[in-house]
Design a protein around this nucleic acid. Structure first.
Lengths: 244, 244
DNA sequence: GCACACTGTGTGCGCCATACACAGACCATA
DNA sequence: TATGGTCTGTGTATGGCGCACACAGTGTGC
């Protein structure tokens, strides 16, 4: 009974094959759809992904996609599942901090490779194989700590949220690195103009500080690691309390 | 020169009035547009907001909106600006932790009141008055700490990201509290079915743990505060290091 | 009082997701 | 081996969307 309730996309992603059926053989597979859609999204953002464009990319008609996918949202699920392939293998030699850091960086790399992921409207919590594998991988990073399963979930989600959030901040500016610089400079200019020291002293103080070279280009690796470490320090405190 | 570059929406939001001009008086104001759009969004989510529906709500034609707003994205900016009015006044008696907690909770309340905010595709960093006021308010929470302006920005962003992220997690499920319960139970069922202990031991362990009553209904205040405290512990560690 | 910038409006375009009916392909069964 | 039913890809059609553009009327600065 439960199996029937599983949406078709999830059934296909988990490889729950229907028994051999009458009718013509399907001409392709959802993974083909995923590949075509990801290609379009990598090139032109999520806006470049439409049912008709994906179908054209595959050489089929728009409506043929609906034989594989119930709705556009399912297309997103399939794209997400294929964009994040296997989670990283975490070095068991490392402590929890090293492991979750590696996990976070791998996640970040994925988001950098496919920035359109951040544009996907999230409707439901993840249930597809690779998504669960990433979850599992993140939870496993806390093996050996005294954290309860619930605590591990919270901690993993915290890191997950942090990575997504920072990626969001940097991905606001468009894709081209040059454009990032320009948009950033323009933003700073405008902010300097609008955030006057009398009404916005805190913001003004931030702007007075000369930007580090490292920071200028992007919310780069150093800054990312710095913020991540703050989060991990918080988790560390929790672990210490749990040990006591 | 710089003023001319400012997008029209921002000019209007900052109250930079153009000199008195020829032609008919405008029939309404962007704040009317904001009110109408927010009303629609509160009732039916961001999907219920279209140029034509907003215009109809106001009793005007679709195209009239474009006399006030250059594009749909600007409409979002206006909605955001009006949905988050004044930031909370932070009690100066409190320490930084109390202040930033109050700020985070106020932010969270705003997101709860207008869940559609999370659906708005963020294209640019904020430059509108209330948005900057919230930024300022968040930065001010760290007054009296040894953190540098840059550190305060990072810390504020960290809290901001946390609140957004957790709100995102809970808002995935739809609006009705009952639906949350149902969706949550359904998710747990499916997860239990798919995340078998052999392949996903970490996830399975999380599921075995009986859910607290408090947790069941929602990612509620207690859980929110718990995660927030973890983040604040991390910031506390940074402050301690800066003091030393 | 006049020129002209500005107002709200009507029409129309191209794109989107997707409902539905259809003709042909193929397997399980007889 | 024949056949029924189910599945395939396709063509057509619908209602919505954001928005470009031309227009007639309005009101201010000169």
């Amino acid at each position: 009974m439960d199996e029937n309730e599983l949406p078709r996309v999830l059934q296909q992603l988990w490889g729950i094959e229907g028994r051999s059926r009458p009718g013509p053989k399907p001409a392709f597979h959802i993974s083909d759809i995923a590949r075509a859609a990801i290609k379009l999204a990598d090139a032109g953002g999520l806006a470049a992904v439409s049912m008709s464009k994906v179908a054209a990319e595959l050489g089929f008609t728009t409506m043929s996609l609906y034989r594989y996918v119930d709705a556009k949202d399912d297309l997103y699920v399939v794209m997400l599942e294929h964009a994040f392939a296997e989670p990283p293998v975490l070095d068991p030699e490392l402590d929890w901090r090293g492991r979750i850091t590696a996990w976070a960086e791998a996640f970040r790399d994925g988001l950098r490779r496919h920035p359109w992921i951040l544009q996907i409207p999230i409707q439901e919590p993840p249930l597809s194989p690779n998504q669960l594998a990433w979850m599992e991988s993140g939870l496993d990073a806390f093996d050996g700590t005294p954290l309860t399963p619930q605590d591990r979930l919270s901690a993993m989600l915290l890191v997950n949220i942090y990575v997504r959030g920072t990626a969001q901040l940097t991905a606001n500016m468009l894709t081209e690195p040059d454009e990032v610089r320009v948009a950033d400079r323009l933003y700073t200019e405008r902010l300097t103009m609008l955030a006057t020291p009398d009404r916005f002293p805190g913001i003004a103080a931030t702007l007075e500080q000369p930007l580090d070279e490292g920071y200028a280009g992007d919310f780069d690796a150093a800054e990312f690691g710095f913020g991540l470490n703050t989060v991990l320090d918080g988790i560390h405190t929790r672990i210490t309390r749990a040990t006591r």
